[in-house]
Design a protein around this nucleic acid. Structure first.
Lengths: 221, 221
DNA sequence: CCCCTATTGAGATTTTTTTCACGTTTACTA
DNA sequence: TAGTAAACGTGAAAAAAATCTCAATAGGGG
């Protein structure tokens, strides 16, 4: 499996979401790059190129087999192997993520949550047990968990990240408003909604105090 | 105020967060492009270019005035003008966003929440009144609100988006796992965490079944 | 069975984004 | 007050990403 660039990965995810949602699974189960492009506002050539990079071949005058496309994307994005994760910090956001049922379709399973609040420890959120922080490291080691979802407050985020790394975590999905430092072999994906806000705020400000500005850019993800 | 590209906007936000967080406000209140670049893992030239596009000039051997940089970014991102928003859908995620206190520093104020659950209507979440859906349109019109934060379930997201547009909303910050359709003058920013997941899942899958793959790409936002 | 047209794959081209290279400016030091 | 070095601005180059063009292919209709 080749290493893919981020832009490609994100587009693959979009294709996957589009194809798995709607009713493309029923016959004739094929779709053309133009149809996908139209729906997702992407260039058709781009779609074919992306498919090409994960080894998908279409057939002239017909297009692509939807199931085959989904299978290839699942393979390349790793959705076909069960991925266990722990979630650190059961605040509002952590709870929202625990309650989100869509992760399973990407192979992602949150198997435990950890929190420092002793009132929450011992309880359950959306069917997931909440454990004390001190149980984190042994739990991760014992189960060989590689992914952590970090939804703790800013103040403790880096410290927790360090503990996660030392426990053997290989990827941190960081929702804390903090830029984390981690060794190069650990992937950190910062999920900052503030980036989205910058686009929105600027757009609205533009409308208020415009200046020779013509549209040059389309829509966000 | 010139129209800026998305990549630039997102980097500006990163600079802003970095500069406003730490203690750069105390004397000498200056910072070099290299320092910023180092902390944010960006090329120093890029930093200077970005600053240049919003009209910031540094001075040789000194760098940039932190306050001036912040002010320029605030202006260009529109943080200096109060921006009122409504939030639609007070589920876990909606609640998390209502409870997040950081928005105010970007000029963003969520002034009302709307929900279809009659148990929630009339109540308050994080100091924000929850109103019935039917009150949405008149409220938006009356207060001239231009931004809506959409945290409703997938099934109703598009229908709500249509109602928001007809009420006069000019930007939708969409957290529903749905690609929305809206007129071209309405900005839609889809905030899909699944895009982040694609990067993480691929990384972990790579580690499991590698193939001549050497690292070519750095870290996420 | 052969033509017609929709659709693909891939090379070429363009555009965007990032990085490099270097002359200029400015503060510090002797 | 001149020399030095750190930092800047900018134009050129490189790299990455997106788009265009077109011959080849494959169903479908006559």
């Amino acid at each position: 499996m080749a290493k893919l660039r981020r832009v490609v990965l994100e587009r693959l995810m979009r294709y996957y979401r589009f194809l798995s949602e709607s009713s493309f699974k029923k016959p004739p189960q094929t779709i053309t790059s133009a149809q996908i492009a139209e729906a997702l506002d992407i260039d058709p050539t781009q779609v074919r190129k992306d498919f090409g990079t994960i080894g998908l071949l279409g057939i002239g005058r017909v297009g692509f087999d939807v199931c085959e496309v989904c299978r290839a994307i699942r393979f390349n994005l790793g959705f076909d192997q069960r991925q266990e994760a722990v979630l650190i910090g059961t605040g509002h956001l952590g709870t929202a993520l625990l309650a989100y049922s869509g992760f399973a379709s990407y192979g992602l399973h949150i198997v435990a949550a950890f929190d420092s609040d002793s009132d929450k420890v011992g309880g359950e959120i959306a069917g997931c047990a909440v454990k004390p922080m001190r149980a984190m490291k042994p739990y991760i080691k014992r189960r060989g968990i590689r992914l952590a979802i970090l939804t703790a407050p800013h103040e403790v985020a880096q410290k927790l990240a360090d503990r996660l790394v030392s426990a053997g975590i290989k990827a941190i999905w960081n929702f804390a408003p903090t830029r984390l430092t981690a060794p190069p072999d650990v992937l950190v994906r910062d999920e900052h909604i503030s980036l989205g806000l910058s686009v929105i705020a600027h757009h609205l400000a533009q409308a208020t105090r415009p200046d020779r500005g013509q549209d040059t850019e389309g829509r966000a993800p």
